[in-house]
Design a protein around this nucleic acid. Structure first.
Lengths: 199, 199, 199, 199
DNA sequence: ATATAAACGAGACGGTACGTCGGGTCTTTTT
DNA sequence: AAAAAGACCCGACGTACCGTCTCGTTTATAT
């Protein structure tokens, strides 16, 4: 995925066109037929590549789709800093849901989650690499809020991240990302709590 | 079809032992090898049944696993009524996580979710049948709380259910159901909100 | 290969059309492209069969080709009885060479021999089944000659069979089956010996 | 295979160590795993050479194995002259079978024959180069016998060579080279004929 | 000395085929 | 009529080699 700067030895270089063609074919198939249309064979066929070439660079289907996610998810990486947790979270989730809906990232992420249910090793990768990286930015966002004194004492930031991601995953996995107005209601409930306060 | 309503023919009835053997084999395989070990072939092999027999009664693997879930999830169906939303939710989630951890239900549910990512029809079943049924009881629980005046005005109950299920799904799908102490921290955050209140 | 008279159990019968199509496709490919064009894939492709179906009935390529040989080699099975070893041998070899040249049997047999050089198990099958069966008839021919008192005392019949088959194999494997006049010169040398006798 | 004496242009010379390492690796693999273990890849791997280097010097696997045969078959080249065809043939065949059994030559020759069944070009090489060279010495042996008046008039020397080689090939290809006592029985049958003579 | 050219390792690559697994559907026999 | 047993086509799996190509290094002439 990332190329090391120093070549360890001689030999032909990886063909970037093939690399690109494989990624693009995966995206096209995901768009046309969804995850269940993606097989190493179908990707190879469409990319004009050979199966061994794909297996040389990606250990399995999940790794291929994960790289597709990485390559298409630039938009989700920018960290908002709008002055309040409420605004930051709102920006973040609108942005994330939008990317999931409008690019192939949503389909790709669903695939990665599904695949991780089949194989413990992929689940470990999902948790320890994929999600670990993706929790960083929201975590800093919570940290900023904490620094501003916005967070209550009983808040456990990691648990709060689970809560936020859980809601998003649930909507992604049940194909309910279009009701964007729910985002702000969700944030209200989250920030204010669901219990009535009788002054 | 063309014959009268009274059974006149000598045909064999559905063999309940076969039915049971298929469910039990599915459970055993789920326990031993997890979801990826479950295939119609492997179930048929272990149950001593034939593939067509399985296909006659279950349209696909997900339906088979869903029935396994139903048959093993009695424990999760009891509705608590402990007098407060906090206590009811705590009981509910401890109970649910326990069942997911200690019976095959957790594995089965993960499978159903994963399978639903492959096929839109199964996703529809998951949402409209499986989840619809499972949201009923928690919904009544929220209703009770509302009747007691416990819920804030800005609360959207369906969204709140999504939030609760989202958190549970996230923990299930990332195999983090053992940290049961998180349940009550989660409920605290949920009920009180995460925003600091400066009296 | 041979159908047993009594069915052992229930279930669909083997589809004779598929069986036939596979054999015929093998023959066609052998004719068009020779042994190196025959692969399980190419046979399956042309026969409109699936690879698993072929593997269900034949353990490997050699077994498939061996059955082709069996099914096409009726002509070689008739045992001559013309009254003298010289005439019987002449008939036998002309017949054999003709079948090898004019049907697909020659190509098939070459393939079986080549394949047996790759795998000890196939070599054992070639010796213990394939050749064992094919040596029977010539052996009886020698027996007849012996009964007529035609054979010298120092003759070892099995060794003599090796000698005859060796000559034929050599010509087959080096594609020299057209010089049929050599057959009778060979038989003369065999019967009379190559040593000059000075009266 | 042979290096021309005059260099045509500049450039590094062929590395004799690499050449040797390739041959030796081929021999080792032939010994350990037989012909089916020999692939250009496996030879390159073991020799620490690259595939293009092998392809630069040998057009195909058969040529490589044929060179192995040449390099290991010195022993079979000496021509006996013991005064009688019977003794000469006996020496020749004992020597040949011994070399085939005790060195890698037998395995190598089987491989060359098998390979020639796959490709007409290799078959032509086998006949026109490989075998042509190997028939020379036995042919002179027969010539000597003829000069001594040992051969009957009806003998066709080339056919007689086919007969002798055929017997040896048959035994080689069916792994029956250990019964060396058969050699002299074979020669007796060959010289005296198999027909009984009633004085 | 310095181009020039070949040999060579390393290895990427498109292919073809391997032998296997599982998905669904169909036919045949048994109960 | 239902069940059981298999045969069957289909598609995909992950791997092994094939033979060709590019790349960068080394080594031996030829200027």
């Amino acid at each position: 995925m990332s190329s090391s700067s120093a070549r360890s030895s001689t030999g032909a270089l990886r063909n970037p066109q093939t690399h690109q063609a494989i990624l693009e074919s995966t995206i096209e198939i995901l768009k046309e037929s969804g995850y269940c249309g993606v097989s190493i064979e179908s990707v190879a066929r469409r990319a004009g590549a050979s199966k061994p070439t794909i297996y040389r660079w990606w250990p399995n289907k999940a790794a291929l789709i994960a790289e597709v996610y990485e390559s298409e998810s630039d938009r989700v990486r920018q960290m908002p800093d709008l002055g309040s947790l409420q605004e930051d979270l709102s920006f973040l989730l609108h942005n994330l849901w939008g990317a999931w809906r409008e690019t192939i990232c949503g389909e790709a992420f669903r695939s990665v989650i599904a695949e991780a249910q089949l194989d413990p090793i992929m689940l470990a990768q999902l948790k320890d690499e994929f999600m670990a990286r993706r929790r960083d930015m929201p975590r800093r966002l919570l940290q900023n809020a904490a620094n501003r004194g916005e967070l209550a004492e009983h808040v456990n930031p990691e648990l709060l991240l689970d809560l936020i991601f859980g809601f998003c995953w649930y909507r992604l996995l049940t194909e309910q990302l279009t009701a964007v107005q729910d985002i702000d209601v969700f944030i209200d409930m989250l920030l204010l709590g669901v219990t009535a306060r009788h002054a």
